[in-house]
Nucleic acid binder design. Structure first.
Lengths: 343, 343
DNA sequence: ATGGCATTTGTAAGCGTTTACATTTCAAAT
DNA sequence: ATTTGAAATGTAAACGCTTACAAATGCCAT
């Protein structure tokens, strides 16, 4: 191998293969257009030089990157991992590459990442939830970059979404819980500011309380960040109330796992002394003891459909079509019926 | 805002501000070089147009991207999350952006991702572990892209590394275990092919067995992928042996959590009926019941130091300097001493 | 052989930046 | 007023690719 002084370019390949740069380019992008002889000549030259096309040059010339960006709140836990995995797989299948950034749940970081991804020529963007500065949607429109929202469904929002109805899901779940006798309901939620998913889940609980004749403003609610420790800490705080709640509804499985740990610290048995529930149904929900009663989210399908829709938006240059997915309630072992429902 | 037909370019800004493109470029990259008047004029134009520089054009002209790529085996669990987080923070501090891809532990996927990141102009690459086709290192050298290995330390490897000695760490851990009376030792490891970390951890256990006069070839070892289910499944298989092992050393916390779940399925108590250990000390290790005895890896420091070193390699154009970090043994509740050490 | 048409290949003009180098401007020193 | 040199700004040439268009080639029917 000639230890050349810099990375080989299209020109080098063309010269070696004794063809024009256009031919080399075609060999890369549309090999069917070449004679077999030419194609092999070029491929040999590419192999000999160890040539890799320069992405920046390519995307500048073609004005396409076949890259899609996803901005997620966090990589620190597995909440978005499965959905993203499915998203990526479907994208691969269609010849796109996925770029992922995380924001640590901070709105300003998200805006920065979005601009970054757009500047990098992302052909489309996947984001989580609807809540963000409307100026961002304007910017994206001006830049002609399609966005698709996931993990939330809302027809009335400015961007198309493929997700589920967080409020309805939580409402139904909470209604079940109320039906099983629980009255002293409490909740640990993620921070709800700039987070429609968290907010809607809270509203869902309140809806259910109203429907059962309970005053929704009496809901004991703590909002915390998204780690196990936060969940445990919030649980401890909730248990200082008198009377103690009979059930703690958590806005996510991660928080619920933290809450279970908090219960263990306090020597409380789950679900005999206190019921705890999650939301998301990530793998974690099945390795805790007791296993978590939670709301199952169709991660995989959501990721796959989102990829399909986003690619369609890009390639057919059309508006996105929203789609509502169903969640299901998974009853495992962390909830017991309540026999002393008095408040 | 003039709903122009395409994204505004440097030229548009220059024209609006009535300066040359060079001036606008300078305003972006080295504002100190401009008169305050000019600077403000340009900034106003940028704001008015909502201009964002085109990344591809920029990196083509400057031959720098201020982007660093990291290729990790998986995002599905939190094993690499904390280290990567620290890596990213330090990178941010120094003005670099991080691009992450995952390979699902597949060597061919890794090679593809590496080429992709190089083609995208990554100024440097972070990879996990040393094991890979030597041709990849050649390629990277030819392309003049610095690589740094992490999660493993080995001076003799082709690339510099900032990590810890997996073999020594596991050896010492296993020696502790042997010292507490365990003799019927078994192990659940990740797939060791193309994975020096897994392999070294296994070797560490064998080393310790030899040192205690045990035949290392008698180690009951199962290699599985990296999910909770895999860990649980392997545990079940291990327990079919006669005599049953008294302890199961797991190659990672994730597998250990799976094993704990397996034990629960079998109605075995941890650690009274069986001891189980992990490796990594991720958050998960403290939310299981019992909490996991494991090997603590300095995720945060490793990520920070790796970022510093990689940036230095890029900016000073020098070879990387390897650094060996220490692991520590964290004794929690999943191990009990063994009173019937006969095999 | 010849013309005509489809297929293959080549030529060269961008794509949106950065940056060496050239030119202009400005303030201080004469 | 002039000169002078530093500071600010402008000019234009890359950077490595794609692609419209032009030219060449090959094949078939005549």
């Amino acid at each position: 191998m000639p230890a050349s002084d810099a990375a080989p370019t299209l020109d080098d390949v063309a010269r070696l293969a004794d063809v024009s740069t256009a031919t080399v380019s075609r060999c890369l992008n549309d090999p069917g257009k070449l004679t077999q002889t030419t194609r092999e000549k070029v491929q040999a030259a590419i192999a000999e030089l160890g040539y890799t096309p320069n992405f920046a040059a390519r995307s500048m010339a073609a004005k396409r990157t076949f890259t899609i960006g996803a901005i997620i709140p966090t990589m620190e836990n597995a909440i978005f991992a499965r959905g993203l995995q499915a998203f990526q797989e479907e994208l691969d299948r269609r010849g796109y590459t996925l770029l992922v950034s995380s924001t640590a749940y901070r709105a300003d970081a998200e805006e920065k990442q979005i601009r970054n991804l757009v500047a990098r020529g992302a052909d489309g963007l996947l984001v989580i939830g609807h809540d963000r500065d409307p100026a961002i949607y304007d910017y994206l429109r001006q830049q002609r970059v399609p966005v698709l929202v996931t993990w939330s469904y809302d027809e009335t929002a400015p961007a198309p979404s493929i997700g589920f109805d967080n409020r309805a899901a939580m409402r139904q779940f909470a209604q079940n819980v109320l039906a099983s006798g629980h009255r002293r309901i409490s909740m640990i939620s993620s921070m709800s500011e700039q987070n429609d998913r968290a907010r809607m889940r809270i509203e869902g609980v309140r809806d259910a309380m109203s429907a059962h004749g309970l005053d929704p403003s009496t809901l004991a609610l703590i909002e915390v960040p998204y780690t196990f420790d936060d969940g445990a800490g919030a649980f401890l705080k909730l248990m200082q109330q008198d009377p103690k709640p009979s059930i703690v509804l958590c806005g996510s499985d991660v928080l619920a796992v933290g809450a279970i740990r908090g219960a263990r610290q306090l020597g409380m048995r789950v679900p005999q002394d206190i019921s705890i529930t999650g939301f998301d149904d990530i793998e974690l929900a099945q390795v805790t003891h007791p296993e978590l009663t939670t709301v199952h989210v169709p991660h995989h399908e959501m990721g796959r459909l989102a990829a399909q829709e986003l690619v369609a938006m890009i390639e057919d240059k059309r508006e996105g079509i929203s789609q509502r997915l169903d969640t299901t309630i998974i009853e495992r072992a962390s909830v017991a019926p309540c026999r002393s429902p008095t408040a």
